[in-house]
Simulated assay, not measured.
Amino acid sequence: MTNLQKRSLLQTVALTAVAVAALVGCGKKEEVAPAAAPGAEAPAKSEPLKIAFMYVSPVGDGGWTYQHELGRRAIQEKFGDRIETSFVESVPESADSERVMRDMAGQGSKLVFATSFGYQEFVQKAAADLKDVKFEHATGYKTAGNVATYDTKTFEGAYLAGIVAGGMTKTKTIGVVASVPIPEVVRNINSFVLGAQSVDPAIKAKVVWVNEWFSPPKESEAATSLINGGVDVMYQNTNSPAVLKTAQERGVRAFGKDGDMSAFAPQAHLGSAVIDWTPYYTKVTQDTLDGKWEGGSFWWGVKEGAMDLVKIADDVPQEVKDRVAKAKAGMKDESFHVWTGPIQDNAGKEVLPAGKVGDNAFLTGIDFYVHGVEGKVPGAK
């Protein structure tokens, strides 16, 4: 080896030693990536699962749709870049909803939540053509290979609110502003009344129908009619806080429904029967990501953390609050069922004998008012 070659080798060794010392001093470890095989490409990042939500009323309705929106936001935060969510609000329960769902699928959505009962036939039509899309229909009863239905036991929240109403009414006449006459809504009206009568069997009830899910002017008008008829505590099965606001204006009491509506009319607010869709949306999203999505029908309530009565007013007597807590605990451990006989309709006919618990077939077919409710369910035989 020549002197020139020796000097070059020594310089190389010295520089290498300096570089290694620098790396060690900084606490870093240098990893050498394996050479890619000729023609090989880096693995592509998997595309996020696209999930779309279709809402029947505005996101800011403060009730039904807002709670679905909170569920959407919750799963987006939980699953991060593994999913991509979107929504369309104020979609009519008409053929336009089918167009919206097809458009969602066309934009790559593989999981679609249709969040209102009136979308049912249009979900079925879209799903029949879009076999690679999973559809979840809220409050419906028609399923298919790629269609599941889901709901919350809103009647449990209505019953809990009814207990409070029974303890707070002075006129012994309570009222409900109702949306559309389907079993779900009729079941909630009756459950509210049953809850009130569990405190005072002499309580009577009045109902005014607005035949829409979201129409604040009609809801306010209906509430005014009930108040003029002697009602001093009101429940609702509509999507806005208009009933609660009207109650405050007229000096009576009312409940929030689906969402926490306490801020809209704090003086009138007795409590809010709140739905939490997050547990169910989390389950369905995880199942879909894992390739384990399954159809069928799902009905969650207090037991699953999907239903609760919150923000009970301070002036509600402790005895009444204790009744609510006891009923809620019974719902959670299934030792108590709202629809347990004996129960009669308002014509005096026994609809559930003593000791019998209404099963799902019974609960989903209710088309009558219970004892104490004035009038007749629209369209009922």
Rank of each mutant, 00 (worst) to 15 (best):
G296T: 10
G296W: 09
G296P: 08
G296N: 04
G296Y: 07
G296L: 09
G296K: 03
S297M: 12
S297C: 06
F298A: 09
F298Y: 13
F298K: 06
F298S: 09
W299T: 05
W300F: 13
W300L: 14
G301P: 05
V302K: 00
V302E: 12
K303L: 07
E304V: 07
E304D: 06
G305R: 04
A306K: 02
A306Y: 08
A306E: 13
A306Q: 11
M307L: 14
M307Y: 12
M307R: 10
D308M: 06
L309N: 02
L309D: 06
L309E: 06
L309T: 11
K311N: 15
K311M: 13
K311Q: 14
I312W: 04
I312G: 04
I312D: 10
I312Q: 07
A313D: 14
D314S: 09
D315E: 15
P317M: 09
P317S: 05
Q318G: 01
Q318S: 07
E319R: 00
E319G: 03
E319F: 03
V320I: 15
K321N: 03
K321W: 07
D322R: 01
R323Q: 15
V324M: 06
V324P: 00
V324F: 04
V324G: 02
A325R: 06
A325N: 09
A325W: 04
K326Q: 14
K326Y: 04
A327R: 02
A327F: 03
A327T: 12
A327Q: 01
K328R: 14
K328Q: 14
A329D: 15
A329G: 11
A329P: 10
A329I: 14
G330F: 07
M331E: 12
M331C: 11
K332H: 03
K332P: 00
K332I: 12
D333N: 06
D333I: 11
E334G: 00
E334I: 01
S335E: 13
S335D: 12
S335M: 10
F336L: 15
F336N: 14
F336S: 14
H337G: 01
H337I: 11
V338Q: 02
V338E: 07
V338I: 15
V338K: 01
V338L: 05
V338Y: 10
W339R: 01
W339N: 02
T340Q: 12
T340K: 13
G341Q: 08
G341F: 10
P342A: 09
P342G: 04
Q344V: 10
N346W: 13
A347K: 13
A347S: 13
A347M: 12
A347W: 08
G348N: 04
G348S: 03
E350P: 00
E350R: 00
E350C: 01
